[in-house]
Each structure stands twice: as C-alpha cells, then as structure tokens.
Write a protein that binds this DNA or RNA. Structure first.
Length: 562
RNA sequence: UGCCCGAUGGUGUAAUGGUAGCACAACAGACUCUGGAUCUGUUUGUCUUGGUUCGAAUCCAAGUCGGGCAACCA
C-alpha cells in the first residue's frame, strides 16, 4: 500500500448476510473451503463511491477469508467501452488500496472459449439462431402477464444452427439479421428465461480484440462463463441482477460447468447526490460538472481531487454494512469518516477566509514576535511551528459582532477574546465606512501579560479565534464545496420533473484566503486543518510548489465562525 | 396487473424463538487556547392484522408500502 493508506484501522467489517453464507459454505467444505470473488466493471464510465462499496466488499471478503479477488473487465460491448475507461478504473481501484495481484482479467480474453460454449449449447439443442427482427422479437416475447410465442428459428436443425452461427461469426450478415438465443421457456414468468439473446452481431472494433470479432456475447452469457472459467466461488452483484440468477444457473448447468453462487446486495445510494452512470455522464457533458474529477461528484476521482483519503472511504464502506434493503445512506456519515481520520492526521494552520482588519493600538509599530503554535493537538509527534504576530492582523469577519446575542463568545465592542497561540485582545472600537456603514477595521488593545494565550491572573475568556498577521499573510485561491443537490434524494422526483432542478447553485464558491506563512510551503496533495474552518487539500493539479490552490474537503462540525 | 426481492428510531445497521443494541444525525450538559476533538446524557424504532408458541423483530398467512424485471446494455 502507498502512503495514502497507512492510517487505516484494519478492522474487518461486522458480519453480514453474505459473510454468513460464506462462513456456512466454508464450514460445509464447499469449494474446498476457498473463497474467490471478483469486481467486474464494464469499462464504459468512471467508478464512483457506489462501486467502492462493491470493491471493498469483494476484495474485503477475499482478504478476510484468505482467498483471492479478481479485477475483471466485463468488456463485451465494444461500442461503449474504451481503454481510457479501463485505465481510469485500474487507477481508482489501486488508489482505494486494493491489490488483485496476478488476477487481472478481461472477458474479451475468453471470447474463443465462449464461442465454443455457444456452439456446444447448439449441439445440445439448447441454443438456436433466431431471425426475428427487434419488433418481432418483442412481439413474440409476450408480456409478464401473458406467455410468449416460439420463434420460427426454435425448430431449426442443429446442422442449420451451427452453419448459421458460423456464418454470423464470419461476418456474412448485417447487424440485427440474426441473434443466437438460449432455448429455455417462452412461457416463463421470468422474462429473462424466455429464450434470451446470448450473442448478437456487432460490427464494431473492440478496444482489445480489434476487428477479430463481428459478434459479441451478451452479459448474461459472458458473465457467468467468466466467473466459471476463473473458478469464482461467490459471485456478488447488485439487486437488479436477482432476476438474472436463474439464467446464470441455467447456462452453467446446461454446459455442466463449475457454478459459482450468485449473491445480490443493495447498491449504495447517498443523500444529496446522484449515482447513476447516465446522470453523472450528463452532468459532465453538459458542463454542470467540471469533468469526471469535479470535486463535487461522487466519483472516486472526484473524491480524490476533493481531498478525501482512501482510508476514509474504506472506513465508510465498512460502516454502511451490506444488506438487501435499498435505502439511502446519509452523506454525513462519509463526512464523519474523513473528519475522523483528518482530525488525527492533518496538521493545523491558520487562515482567514473573510478578513476583517484588526489594529492593536498598544502594539509597537514595527514589532514582530514569533509565537509558538502546536501543529496537531491530537498528535504530539507533529511538533510545533512559529507564527508571526504584529500590530496589524486579520481575523474572520464573522468573529466580530457589533451587537452580539447572549451566546456569542467572540469579539464585540468592549469584549475580550484570545487570539489562538497569541494574546488576549479587547475591542475598543469598530471603525465603519462612513458611506456604507460597513465595518472596515477594529481598534483593539492587547494584554502583554497574556503572551501565548495564558492570563497570569487566571482570568478566562470564552472565545478563542484564529488570525493572521497582515504583513506576513500569503494569499491563495480556495474553493469551497457544498452538496451538489439541495434535495436530499435527488432521484426521488415527481413525474415530469427534471432531476436537475434540485442542483445546488452554490455547490462551488471560489474565494481567496489569507494564510499564515507556513502554508505557503504547502505541496500539492497536502492536507491541513485550517483551524475552526475545516479540512483543506492542496489541489494536486492546480497547485504549484509555493503557490497552493486549496479545496475544502469538508467543514468542521458546528457553526462558527461563518 | 405477472414474477422476484425487501420493510427495525430522522438515516444506516445488529439481534437468527428468550432484556430491541450500535453508528451517524439531532438535542442537552461537562471539559477545552479550535463553538473542533473528547466525555456524559436525552429524544425517537420492530409496516398492519391475524396465527403458531410459555415466549415472536425473528416462524406461518393475508394485506399495505417500497424496489426490481418486458435493450440485440451491463
């Protein structure tokens, strides 16, 4: 694992119904007690946090039971897939911290064997070539409440089927002219069993096999065979494949091949975002999102760009559990996971987002003091640094109120607060712009006895606020991210309503911060807690050494100061 | 409407015939040189109706509600 992954608590998840099945199987000696799982993405899009759930489940199962987990690309539809997507998927799974060892596979590597399996099915009278066009096909299939009718091709002889199938492969026919179908049951209440298509003609170049094939297997045929060829023991997939399971079993039984057990679980839904490939693609292509790695997106590359750590995502996936209930997980849990990790690990620094100038009237004009500040109160080993203190400072505008309510513990006329790691200051006067009435400057005095933030007379102040020295402050661009949608469940919309209506217009705000000098040395990829503001990530793409650009990963809990 | 699957506090998830617990969220208090963190406490739950049983979240039946399935996508 790379250094992104060092801070994990290696706890296995609590047991769930899938682990219960596996433990039962192991106890019964099924599959010789071994466990082999797989994560089988189609390389036609980017991975998101929902995939992370599946990845952590499959790889986690293999780790927990001493088995193996394969990364297999389900690349059976060349018109939608590309190596670019495959490369991005590999990068994301690795970043998440998982290792498939030698077990990287492609369904397309099995095309020859699959073709053999199809001809074997024909020989066994369990598959036939069908000449129905799409409309006729649908018509013959029937509807859930009424059985379908048999295709004329269903009675074709083995010899003719073999001949036609071979000619389909040879490229003799146009797309759509023929398909190969499994011969099962046109009256089945499960539509997937009404002689499903298992091969279709598609004259598209494949990103791995080029133009060698003009026909490609359908998911239902390719997937169970790939699992079987690889010796998968437990084929874990999402709920929508539940109705495909009889077909999965039928094909492998018809061919008398090793049959893994398909187990379905509920995919992840997260509040305030969308997860479907289609919607994500639309956000990217319409320009609402700034590419697949837009930090507001739930894509793994988006979360990475935002500053989320792999360990926090793994921790999240461990906590959400695995069931067959299709619910919505509160994004607050994800945020909790990253806060918990970063609270332990992120160095603190001071930065001001919305500056208000403070002049310390009794501080000598040119005096500068270097004050010691703790880098991480949760980690003594993180050490200390110094921050410069001078006559003119900036504090957060929200940390001052002219007419404060009862529970406001920060600066106000006549009130005293502590400047973090600095001195106590008392506000004497708020200077306003005579035209606008806006407060432009605070005139304060400091207590020289309170250096470092301690009062020798033991007097207490309720508020401690962050600050930067005006003349020493560095500027940096910062992006503040908020939830992409205002609706908790953007997918739950009334009919006729556009799911994009609940997009949050304020999901990204660009501004500037004034930072303490140490932050100017931030390197791309560094994470900090800006005290009292939140956790920030030096954007790895836009930051330059000495000129960081920060993304807010997540705010701190609580309301102050903004 | 045909088939399949599901339903436990606001959210997610345990309890596998024997005290309904945990996490997140919310709220309150303690502590605090981050209104952070930490600690303590509180609120809120077994979809409904029957049945089996000494005893049901759990087993059975019916119903209600939710999800999925009718691409030559995966």
């Amino acid at each position: 694992m790379n250094d992104e992954n060092t801070s994990e608590k290696n706890d296995e998840p609590a047991s769930d119904f899938i682990r219960a099945i596996i433990e039962r199987d192991r106890a019964a000696g099924k599959h010789g007690g071994t466990v082999a799982t797989r994560f089988p993405p189609e390389p036609n899009g980017y991975l998101h946090i929902g995939h992370a759930k599946s990845i952590c489940l499959n790889f986690g199962l293999a780790r927990q039971y001493g088995g193996r987990c394969h990364l297999r690309f389900d690349d059976t539809n060349p018109s939608k897939e590309s190596v670019e997507y495959a490369d991005a998927i590999i990068r994301d799974v690795q970043w998440l911290g998982w290792d498939w060892g030698e077990h990287l596979y492609y369904a397309s590597d099995y095309f020859d064997r699959m073709y053999e399996c199809a001809t074997e099915l024909i020989r066994r009278g369990k598959a036939y070539v069908c000449e129905l066009n799409t409309e006729a096909f649908k018509e013959y299939r029937g509807v859930p409440t009424r059985p379908g009718r048999e295709s004329p091709g269903r009675q074709r002889s083995e010899v003719d089927n073999l001949d036609l199938f071979q000619r389909m492969r040879a490229g003799e026919f146009e797309e759509g002219r023929y398909v190969l179908r499994a011969r099962i049951d046109m009256a089945s209440p499960n539509l997937h069993m009404r002689d499903p298509v298992i091969y279709r003609i598609k004259k598209a170049a494949h990103h791995r096999t080029g133009t060698r094939w003009t026909l490609y297997p359908m998911y239902d045929f390719a997937h169970c065979l790939s699992d079987s060829f690889e010796g998968i023991t437990h084929s874990v997939c999402t709920l929508e494949f539940e109705v495909h399971r009889p077909l999965y079993d039928w094909i492998l039984d018809a061919l008398e091949l090793h049959r893994p057990q398909q187990i379905e679980f509920a995919r992840l839904n997260l509040t305030y975002t969308v997860m479907s490939k289609r919607k994500l693609l639309e956000l990217v292509e319409s320009g609402v999102a700034d590419g697949w790695d837009d930090p507001r997106l739930p894509t793994l590359c988006g979360l990475r760009r935002r500053g989320y750590t792999p360990a926090s995502i793994r921790d999240f996936c461990r906590r959400i559990g695995v069931t067959k209930f299709d619910g919505y997980t509160d994004v607050a849990l994800l945020e909790h996971c990253v806060r918990e990790e970063l609270n332990r690990t992120a160095p603190r620094a001071m930065a001001v987002l919305d500056p208000l100038k403070v002049v310390i009237e009794n501080w000598p004009e040119d005096r500068v003091e270097e004050l010691e500040a703790v880098n991480n109160p949760e980690d003594a080993a993180a050490g200390t640094r110094t921050v410069p203190f001078a006559r003119e400072l900036y504090i957060e505008r929200g940390d001052f109120m002219e007419n404060p309510p009862k529970k406001f513990f920060r600066l106000a006329p006549g009130r005293e607060v502590r400047l973090r790691y600095g001195y106590f200051i008392r506000c004497r006067e708020a200077i306003k712009d005579p035209e606008t009435g806006r407060i432009v400057e605070l005139r304060c005095t400091y207590d020289p006895e309170t250096r470092g933030g301690h009062a020798p007379d033991g007097r207490k102040v309720r508020g401690t606020i962050h600050w930067v020295s005006a003349s020493h402050a560095h500027r940096a661009r910062v992006r503040l991210y908020d939830r992409l949608f205002t609706a908790e469940r953007p997918d739950d919309i009334a009919e006729g309503e556009d799911w994009k209506h609940s997009l949050n217009p304020d999901s990204r705000t660009e501004t500037e911060v004034l930072m303490e000098p140490s932050l100017a040395r931030a390197l791309p990829g560094d994470r900090f807690q800006f005290e009292r503001l939140g956790y920030f990530f030096a954007d790895p793409v836009e930051s330059k050494p000495g000129a960081p650009v920060f993304n807010r990963i997540v705010s701190l809990k609580g309301k102050a100061p903004s």
